[in-house]
Design a protein around this nucleic acid. Structure first.
Ligand SMILES: [Mg+2]
Length: 923
DNA sequence: TTTAGCATAAACATCG
DNA sequence: TCGATGTTTATGCTAA
């Protein structure tokens, strides 16, 4: 089948591959930015010869492989994310022109790669026949304890290796310790192992290179999301309107249906597999190593395809590097992209492979990192950088076979997806180690209407790209915004905005920058309908968590938006509730594994706070990571110390502060201090930007000892949404200090008017039903104010500042137009005038006729309902315009209406909606 | 069924 | 005048 497809490869690809150096990855910046950078262990092996020389020169001391004593252990590489993020274009790295030494940056101490620490030479013993075995210290069995049969993970060894092994040292390449072990101590690492494609199944030639023991193992890679998310360049490029990385015919990587072996850097030949030509025949004309390589490659290719093989071989020295990358998409195109890098310098070589798949609506990326150590005698010039790319499209696939191939049926065949109906719900395949990757395609299946079936281009077609999936990314699978560009991010706009602002150095961004950030980090929006910008603005305006601050008039139009520090914890919490918040990916996997093993595969969205592991990737979110570090610590403290009733505990802490209760737990105080410090960080910015809003003028201090602290709730209902204002429930009567004008009285009441009504439904923060601001009186009796107290007081001050801000009615409240003279009085007057004009002109309110898309007959859908709701709107508007909050409160029905409306300003007239439904039902 | 949360669309105003 | 920005309202969907 695959051979057939290879025969169908477009000539253009062939031409390109022949006319341009294939190994020159891509001159196109967008594409290059997507490539993975060299791992540090790849860097400059040529210069860090210390260790290698030891090894190479002391070849005779090597132990015999027969002794099966682990000699080398290839230590796992650092988190891939650190390798990927700020990478220079790979093209610059892989370009054949520069010598390898120039490509390799200085010294990644190989010693750091090789563990345990004792020098290699000390652990090597001479042998007459230098057969080297590179194996990890722990037995494979211990490393792979709960994992599927090892045989499924072993890399095949081509017979060519056996031959070479006869004359040259054969190195046994030990498996890399699971990356996950470095990420999380989850015991269930096996579930993270990547499946091995059938073509990777143990080949007979694998058997017994030396001891009939498995030689290769594909080390599991960390979650893709953690590995691949960082690549902002691509997203940035997209956000700037630059064309998306084109894997089309101009890119040498796109060699559909053919395999290309590149031997570069050392001036090796470039050998290509001609389309439709027997690859083996061609390569038999090559020299030995190429022939071997080709044979191996051909073998793998002939085993069903879907695999990429990277082989690096050097004469008389054997290195096998093997990597599989699998990309699948249902019924459409499959792009398989593999980059394998192998460098040799007398000794070890690193193999590095990136597999990338970009596919419309279905994107599966498999990423595998392989490390191969290689020993070679003498020849220091034997550096070989070999890149093998096998890219393959199955656009022509049709019929059931396509489905089979694209629906991970081979996984089922291999019992990796036991009994999972991929067609129905691959997402159910939680038991599969590949479910994380499978689900994407599965999730896309539902709305996949793009079965063009003929799209060789890995990029989505125009029609495809115009209709990105509006379905949110499924929660049970890792999400990478840069990979799942067709899945709606599982973050709310609030979270997106929050992340954007937090990721900015100044913690304040204009809306345009927020757009840019979102575009850069979530390319989904590049092709999403433009309404999302409206949503962003809408969210900024309506969400109390975000505050508009004036910026210098010469900075252009618009304002800066920043996170209200008061609500920031809510946003943080909301972000953490997101299925794949930036700092959840790592632990998420372990949690997921845990759940899988415990038989609760569908609870993978449950996040477990695990301290610093929640921190965002600093490469991804440089500022956000720093910024959230403190809050993470706070949260960790909270989560670890506080019970589920965080709000209650927080409130208790507040009470303790209020009463000077020294009984407050040390950790609570510590947390509070941290909050204070954290807020102190932000307050100056906010206050500075909000100079016109002097808290002192609005919030009576009530004496030097009195402080008011906002109660920060963690109630889910008050996270960060429009109703976040409920967090600060305060009524004029009960919070007179916070009210200096009738307008403000209404504002406070309008936000939580039911709070003043006895018997109202309890609210989460109703531990202090009327206290959004808790007076904290610095205990005069505590004459021996400790430093801690002072800090607490400062924190209280800071929070008081925030309270001063928070107690002010925000601009989105119409009442503010009357009362807020601090922000641009002229502006306020304009607003007032505008509102009056609006009302008089009748453009709004009752006479506004929303344009509905869905109409029934000649009437917009919900016509009657709208008429009814408009009455409510009228009521509401009247109320607002007259600022007669009390009037509404006096009206029971209206109070109820406002109760709903005030708690969810966006969900306006829900009460009427329900009433209307009832009415219609009656009718 | 109700409610809250969220998204989306749209109208409209303001401003550079 | 136009586009970006900001506000507000309306409505639908979904999950709890
Ligand atoms: Mg706001």
């Amino acid at each position: 089948m695959y051979r057939q497809r290879r025969a169908q490869v477009k000539p253009a690809h062939n031409d390109i591959s022949q006319s341009t150096p294939v190994y020159k990855i891509s001159p196109s910046p967008p594409l290059s930015t997507r490539y993975l950078p060299f791992h540090h262990c790849l860097q400059d092996i040529s210069q860090s010869t210390t260790v290698y020389n030891d090894i190479s020169h002391s070849a005779p001391v090597y132990k015999d492989i027969s002794q099966s004593t682990p000699v080398y252990k290839i230590s796992p590489s650092p988190p891939l994310s650190t390798m990927i993020s700020p990478s220079p274009p790979l093209s610059t790295m892989i370009s054949p022109s520069p010598p390898l030494s120039t490509m390799i940056s200085p010294s990644p101490p190989l010693s750091t790669m090789i563990s345990p620490s004792p020098p290699l030479s000390t652990r090597l013993s001479p042998q007459s026949t230098p057969v080297y075995k590179i194996s990890p210290s722990p037995p494979l069995s211990t490393m792979l304890s709960p994992s599927p049969p090892l045989s499924t993970r072993y890399l095949p060894v081509h017979p060519c290796l056996q031959d070479i092994s006869h004359s040259t040292p054969v190195y046994k390449i030990s498996p890399i310790p699971p990356l996950s072990t470095r990420i999380s101590p989850s015991p269930l690492l096996s579930t993270r192992y990547l499946p091995v494609h059938p073509c990777l199944q143990v080949h007979p030639c694998l058997q017994d290179i030396s001891q009939s023991t498995p030689v290769y193992k594909i080390s599991p890679s960390p979650p893709l999301s953690t590995m691949l998310s960082p690549s902002p360049p691509l997203a940035i490029a997209r956000s700037r309107g630059e064309p998306s990385p084109n894997f089309g015919s101009k890119t040498p990587f796109v060699c559909f249906g053919q395999a290309t072996i590149l031997n570069s850097v050392s001036g090796g030949r470039t050998v290509k597999l001609g389309i439709g030509q027997p690859t083996t025949d061609r390569y038999r004309e090559e020299d030995q190593q190429h022939s071997v390589a080709v044979q191996a490659l051909d073998l793998f290719l002939s085993l069903q395809g879907y695999c990429g093989v990277a082989l690096v071989m050097q004469l008389k020295v054997t290195v096998l590097l093997y990597i599989l990358v699998l990309v699948m998409q249902l019924k459409v195109t499959i792009l398989l992209y593999i980059l394998a890098l192998v460098m040799q310098l007398k000794v070890t070589v690193l193999l590095y492979i990136l597999a990338l798949d970009v596919q419309f609506k279905v994107t599966i990326l498999l990423y595998i990192l392989a490390l191969v150590m290689q020993l070679k005698e003498g020849d220091a010039a034997g550096n070989i950088l070999t890149t093998v790319k096998v890219e393959k499209a199955v656009a022509e696939r049709s019929g059931s076979e396509d489905d089979d191939l694209t629906s991970l049926s081979w996984l089922q065949d291999k019992n990796l997806l036991k009994g999972i109906n991929l067609q129905v719900a691959v997402g159910e395949a939680q038991e599969s180690p590949t479910s994380d990757f499978v689900d994407d395609s599965a999730s896309e299946v539902a709305d996949s209407t793009c079965s063009s079936g003929n799209s060789l281009s890995p990029l989505p077609s125009s029609s495809q790209s115009s209709s990105p999936s509006k379905l949110k990314h499924p929660q049970h699978m890792p999400y990478d915004p840069l990979i799942h560009v067709h899945s709606k991010p599982p973050y709310s706009f609030s979270c997106l905005i929050f992340m954007a602002i937090e990721d900015s150095p100044s913690k304040a961004l204009p809306v345009k920058e927020i757009y840019s950030w979102i575009l850069a980090h979530f390319p989904y929006f590049c092709k999403a309908p433009t309404g999302w910008k409206n949503s962003v603005r809408h969210n900024l305006s309506l969400n109390k968590c975000f505050r508009k601050v004036e910026k210098a008039p010469n900075l252009g139009k618009g304002s800066l938006w920043m996170v209200d520090p008061v609500y920031r914890p809510n946003l943080v919490q909301a972000l953490k509730k997101a299925p794949f918040h930036p700092y959840s990916s790592l632990e998420r996997v372990s949690v997921s594994n845990r759940n899988r093993s415990s038989g609760s595969p569908h609870q993978t969205d449950v996040l477990v706070a695990k301290g610093n592991s929640r921190l965002p990737n600093p490469d991804l979110f440089p500022f956000l990571s720093r910024r959230l570090a403190a809050s993470t610590a706070d949260t960790t403290c909270l989560l670890s110390d506080m019970t589920a009733d965080d709000d209650v505990n927080a409130a208790a802490a507040m009470l303790a502060l209020k009463h000077g209760n020294r009984m407050i737990a040390q950790k609570r105080a510590e947390w509070f201090r941290r909050i204070q410090v954290q807020n102190d960080d932000s307050i100056p910015v906010l206050l500075d930007l909000r100079k016109k809003k002097t808290r002192a003028s609005k919030i009576p201090q009530g004496g030097s000892n009195e402080r008011m602290i906002p109660v920060i709730t963690t109630s889910p209902s008050e996270d960060h949404t429009y109703s976040a204002g409920r967090t600060f429930t305060s009524t004029p009567a009960q919070q007179p200090l916070a009210t200096t004008s009738p307008d403000e009285a209404f504002e406070e009441g309008s936000e939580s008017n039911e709070g003043s009504s006895p018997g109202d439904e309890p609210r989460p923060v109703c531990l202090f039903p009327n206290l959004s601001l808790v007076k904290v009186v610095k205990s005069s009796s505590s004459s021996s104010d400790t430093e801690e107290q002072r800090k607490i007081a400062e924190g209280a001050d800071a929070l008081l500042n925030l309270a001063g801000i928070s107690t002010r009615k925000r601009s989105h409240s119409q009442g503010e137009y009357h009362s807020d003279n601090n922000i641009s009085p002229s502006h306020s007057m304009k607003r007032v005038a505008t509102r009056g004009r609006r009302k008089n002109s009748g453009k709004r309110g009752l006479q506004r006729v929303p344009v509905k898309k869905n109409v029934v007959g000649n009437h917009p859908r919900g016509f009657q309902r709208r008429k009814q709701s408009q009455v409510a709107i009228n009521i509401n508007n009247n109320n607002v315009v007259s600022s007669s909050g009390n009037h509404l409160k006096s009206h029971k029905g209206a109070t109820k209406l406002l109760s709903n409306h005030s708690t969810n300003e966006n969900g306006s007239i829900r009460q009427l909606k329900s009433e209307d439904k009832v009415g219609r039902t009656k009718r």
